[in-house]
Design a protein around this nucleic acid. Structure first.
Lengths: 145, 145
DNA sequence: CAAAATGTAACTACAATGATTACATGTAAC
DNA sequence: GTTACATGTAATCATTGTAGTTACATTTTG
């Protein structure tokens, strides 16, 4: 399967909080932009909050950024929204036959390559920030005209 | 979610075909090593066959390697077994609001980063071969003693 | 033909996703 | 304090992909 769209929604939310920072960004307003249900937004916003990326409080309308968007990497968001279960991007078949040479060693052996690949992906995400995304959005918008 | 364990099973099969190349590797035998059902093995073997990685025929017992394992990268296997649907590792929420500045640009904007991250992962897999895995397995086995 | 193996399809159980509804909790304004 | 409104959260549901299982058609060899 693929990485949860919570990731792209999380990025969407953060970009929106920056670009519409003068507006009141309630879960309902954000849901309109993302095109989903407000409860979905509240759940993801809650995850972003737990990661210290946004500020949001029960009873108080609207979410706001808790950090400068230049300091929020895509990896931060990726981790915040649990884009991948348990941080295990690859799943390995379990209980291979321990009585077989290949069976008893395969798990540790593939783990080496899987970890390296996962690290490569995460490193790429770490080099990109919400600032980059916001700039790109504004750029694309300018080109539309 | 995470990347299908078909990937690790595919690697397991190929490694086994090399290490046990003097034996007859039927779907039943392979299933014993992987610890799963023969039909599962036949399905994955079929995918590896379609990708030109193994040789296997109806009515004839056993699968064999169709290429030198130094020439089979993990990316080849990854693609062969369809480890990720449609080659889209990341999923993006669809139909964001086109009447919103962020909504109408977010998909293309995240696509840039997502593609880069996916490429980074695939590049890493491309640099590793079944040979590496086999060597590692044999190495680990030696260290057990 | 008979035996044995592969290729496939159908079915099942399971798990995660994302949407939806409902409601408890918390805040502010009156 | 009560009311209005927003967030937090749990329960439910439909959908989807996975992986296992069974069954059977197809193909080859003896």
């Amino acid at each position: 399967m693929s990485i949860s769209s919570r990731f792209s929604v999380g990025i969407h939310i953060l970009a929106l909080l920056e670009i519409d920072k003068t507006e009141l960004n309630t879960s309902e307003n954000i849901a309109m932009s993302v095109n989903t249900n407000p409860a979905v937004i509240r759940k993801i916003t809650g995850m972003l909050k737990k990661a210290g990326l946004v500020y949001v409080q029960p009873g108080i309308a609207g979410a706001t950024l808790a950090k400068d968007i230049s300091d929020i990497t895509l990896l931060d968001v990726y981790r915040a929204v649990n884009a991948v279960q348990e941080d295990e991007l690859f799943s390995v078949h379990d209980k291979p036959n321990p009585d077989c040479l290949v069976g008893r060693n395969i798990q540790d052996s593939v783990e080496i390559s899987f970890s390296a690949a996962q690290r490569a992906l995460e490193k790429e995400l770490e080099h990109r920030t919400i600032r980059d995304v916001v700039d790109d959005i504004l750029n694309k918008e300018r080109l539309r005209k």
